[in-house]
Amino acid sequence: MKPRQFVPAFIVFVLIIALIPVFVGFNEYFILLATVVLIYGVITTAWNVMGGIAGQLDLGATAYLGIGAYVAGNMLIWWNITPWIGMFVGAIIAAGFASAIGYVMFRYGVKEIWYALSTLGLVEVLRVIFMLWKEVGGPLEKYLPRSKTDPFYYMSFGSYIPYFYIALIFLLITFLVNYRLRYSKIGYSMLALGSNEDAAESLGIDTRRTKLKGLFIYSFIVGAFGGFYACFCSFIHPNTDFNMNFALEIAVLGIVGGLGTYYGPLLAASILVSLKEYLRAVFGTIVLGIYPAIFGLAIILIILFKPEGLSSILKNVYIKLRKGGGTKHGRQQHS
């Protein structure tokens, strides 16, 4: 049931992204912009496992991101352990934490809007805890050690290009996880769960376990990415890492992109985050605070006029192209 036709398209797509630094003439500002887009892309694509495929409105992305950032960051600060290892440890701790919380929530039947609100609350609770917990956090930025001689070990580079490629690798992995999942048994269970929980349960799907699996995969990726995020920012701070608005943005991008497709979130992140950063750059100095309005309006317009999400545009183009090429119509995708 795998639509293999997507594989070549995917490879072309990755190559194009990989060449972005060349297209922009290695302009640091544009590469930074592209890296920010990728950061949103990675987290939203990971979110898609839980929010899109399994249909659980998770608003806690930055809870896991923050845990990953603090674990990797502190390991580097305290013990001088490279973030490459820290990332992995962070991922395990973030996923372990998420699973423990998730186990209790799913056990007690927390779902829908209540799941959304409690995951969002979790971000804020963690932010406050890390603010007060002076040993690991505290209200001051904790800067990560840097080194000119061994930037790779410290993941602290003088240019944005390495960050860009690390984020791209993350995106690739996340994308492949989504893709694999989407057409596997677990993926189908997740989709069924997201589509109609009672029906799925009555047909033999263990919805609690399915949710836990989704949450584990998602929080593992985001937790690992937290380590990278800490290095990218070059410091850790509760407001940066456990940021509610960031978590909300992720969910909104996922919804706007088109739930349950594996490319929609990335599409939304590319379009909307570029738009946002562009607006910030252009209007930020002229009219303070105008860009969230335009960003917000863009979201409203997309929801009202493209309720199936941005991915449906891509899908339609794709179907037209294939029809134009005289081949048989492609199999219907879930929207």
């Binding site: 269970s189 989709l191 589509s195 009672d198 029906a199 799925a200 047909l203 799907i205």
Partner: peptide, 21 residues
Amino acid sequence: KPFLNFTVEESLLIGTLKKRS
């Protein structure tokens, strides 16, 4: 309680997941 975005065939597939592949 249908799976609105599933095809008929995929809806049936969900029922078989547990026991067959």
